[in-house]
């Protein structure tokens, strides 16, 4: 879809990252490095929670930056820079997850329904961790349980949750990143939250040691 001049001007005025990206378009290496410095940790975090492996997450984040560099000459600001970057990240992560699923390196059976009972992975993981809800968890243990709860979400729910919670993207922006409608994102997030609550509630009721 063509981006109008007024849209491009609006985003250029509002978003300092868009201004940096326009300088990257003009082959400014310092601007590229500044963008990278701003987003690298967040991107690696996002990828780590998406694919579950730190080494792979770093490779994928580097791939995202490389794609940004390669796409620089075609860049026209049609959204916030972060929205554009997470769209690339979403594509990169989806491809990687598909590849992993084909090679069966990880169990990526996601659930489209909100029923946790449909996903034996989560229940198994929780049982294996030994972190049973009957006792008080310390912070590290709670962090582990939360990690398991997030990894038990399906890929789309996980992506939407991470973008919403940690990148503070609105439903509309998440919809743009994931190429869906805002109402679909609304449903997706509510199902994701229901799933998270189902796994986490017993632990949260017990409370955590600090």
């Amino acid at each position: 879809m063509a981006i109008s001049d007024s849209t491009a001007q609006r985003y250029t005025a509002q978003d300092p990252d868009v201004r940096l990206m326009l300088q990257v378009r003009d082959d400014n290496a310092a601007a590229f490095e500044e963008l990278m410095q701003r987003y690298q940790s967040r991107l690696v975090s996002l990828m780590t929670h998406l694919v579950g492996r730190r080494d792979m997450a770093e490779d994928l984040a580097q791939d995202v930056f490389l794609r940004i560099y390669r796409a620089r000459k075609r860049y026209v600001p049609g959204s916030k820079f972060s929205t554009w970057m997470y769209t690339i990240a979403n594509n990169v992560a989806s491809n990687a997850l598909r590849g992993l699923a084909r090679r069966k390196e990880v169990n990526l059976v996601g659930r489209e329904s909100g029923e946790l009972g449909g996903n034996p992975l989560a229940a198994k993981a929780l049982a294996a961790s030994g972190l049973m809800p009957t006792r008080l968890l310390d912070k590290a243990e709670l962090s582990e349980v939360v990690k398991i709860a997030v990894s038990a979400l399906n890929e789309r729910q996980r992506m939407a949750v991470l973008l919403n919670k940690f990148e503070h993207l609105s439903y509309e922006e998440i919809a743009e990143v994931m190429q869906q409608s805002p109402s679909a994102i609304k449903s997706l997030l509510s199902r994701a939250r229901a799933n998270l609550r189902e796994v986490l509630e017993p632990y949260l009721e017990q409370g955590a040691k600090v």
């Binding site: 490095e33 990278m36 690696v44 975090s45 490389l66 912070k139 709670l142 939360v146 939250r193 986490l200």
Partner: peptide, 28 residues
Amino acid sequence: AERAWAALDQLPMASVADEFSRTTMDMV
């Protein structure tokens, strides 16, 4: 729902060493 959402704050965040940006720039 709010409690479960707040619990996500416990999710560890990655931090990236200088090495990461150096190798990325090398790739670029």
